[in-house]
Design a protein around this nucleic acid. Structure first.
Lengths: 225, 225
DNA sequence: GGACATCTTTACAAAATCTTTATAACTGCA
DNA sequence: TGCAGTTATAAAGATTTTGTAAAGATGTCC
């Protein structure tokens, strides 16, 4: 199973270190940024599963970063702050923060709030297995089966298929798919999609030349059924 | 839009009263229960949009109530508690609580956390569907059905039909349609429209020679009904 | 360091879609 | 009826989009 990835945006090295140690020992992969700008770049080039954002950054206010992130990033953002005033908290929550903790925080509580947020964002109607015709996807174990036989997928292939399955029936645009899987800054790389849809079809379709699961919506995107 | 409904489960009347006043003045509908048992009954008979649950109840511990609720209730549950110990918080969050506030709480913060939770739980709701006789258009999934059977449309055909459907009954001029679908500089290309209305009629009309949905308004434009 | 899996990029063929042209059909009116 | 203006349909041509194979690049694990 792949580790969930967490991006820490905080200018204090000792806080970053503390978080890193705690998160890594709880089986998260950690990426760090010391400025808001760096955080925005990192999240755009490779979207993490959750962002821990310090409000008091040197270059830009955390509120600005939050707003910029929320223009496209829709996974959890937990705010960490020394500020314990209500205005800050309310404004952060209303601007799309998932949660708000004041420093010093209790590590156990932070971890629990991270677990809770990640679980909710993976939000699959509390059924961890998506079934769709002859395809079965176990979102917890990250295993895909076709006619009860396990299929070997690379990490990107799996992420793409899981995203499709979570949105069964809906047309997902190229832009959206690229943004979710590769990151905000990859929105124009539609050729990636063609290649990966191609390999996915070879693995999950009965007849890849006449796909029954991943349907092309020409000019728009793809649809999973 | 209907008011969101909030169920308060708390044994202290003065807290309930305080919450009630604050919530109602923020346009929520409020239902109250003074015991865990009553709360379970009320939520089962008429599920609210969000539950505020006090941990320290006289009959059953709030943790038990939480677990029982989570067996079937998947909208937000926010815990209110005088307990500020980490064990309680972690256990509540891991048992499916959406958030955890310690009393005394700040009203503005509670309201912001409620807004945040409600917003998040709502954006997984189903998509709006425009229905029009035997035609059904799902604007989010980008799917068109006739007599419950999916119809394959090209991107331009779909855009045109969606535009028609959003303006059901109104006459849309050639100019307007061309401007919306093709762009400002195509306003004189009425032949495009004829071609695409033609293919659309073939796909969605019972008898394309006697269209019932896309009606020609000679010299002006088209009307969808 | 080298074998291996995976991702990225390139090139080209195939398919789908859009645009244009030609022609037929309809409508209202003298 | 015949005419002018508008609309409908079919089909050829042009363009865009998609699919596939394969080579190059990158990273990982021993």
């Amino acid at each position: 199973m792949n580790k969930a990835e967490i991006l820490i945006i905080d200018d204090e090295p000792q806080i970053r270190k503390l978080l890193q140690i705690n998160l890594e020992s709880n089986d998260y992969k950690v990426v760090q940024a010391s400025t808001g700008k760096e955080g925005l770049m990192l999240s755009a080039s490779h979207p993490p599963d959750l962002i821990l954002l310090d409000i008091g950054l040197p270059d830009k206010s955390g509120h600005e970063i939050l707003q910029e992130l929320r223009e496209w990033y829709n996974r959890p953002i937990i705010i960490l702050s020394v500020q314990d005033n209500e205005t800050d908290i309310v404004s952060a929550l209303d601007n799309g923060a998932t949660d708000y903790l004041t420093k010093p925080f209790r590590t156990g509580e932070l971890l629990a709030r991270i677990r809770s947020a990640v679980k909710r964002s993976q939000n699959t109607e509390n059924s961890p297995i998506i079934s769709c015709g002859d395809i079965e996807i176990d979102l917890v174990a990250r295993i895909v089966k076709r006619n009860n036989e396990a299929i070997k997928l690379t990490s990107t292939e799996y992420n793409l298929l899981a995203l499709f399955a979570k949105n069964e029936g809906k047309v997902l645009t190229h832009q959206y798919l690229l943004k979710e899987i590769w990151g905000y800054s990859y929105q124009t790389e539609t050729q990636y999609l063609r290649v990966f849809v191609g390999t996915l079809r070879k693995k999950i379709e009965e007849n890849p030349n006449n796909p029954q699961h991943i349907i092309t919506e020409s000019g728009v995107g793809y649809r999973f059924q």
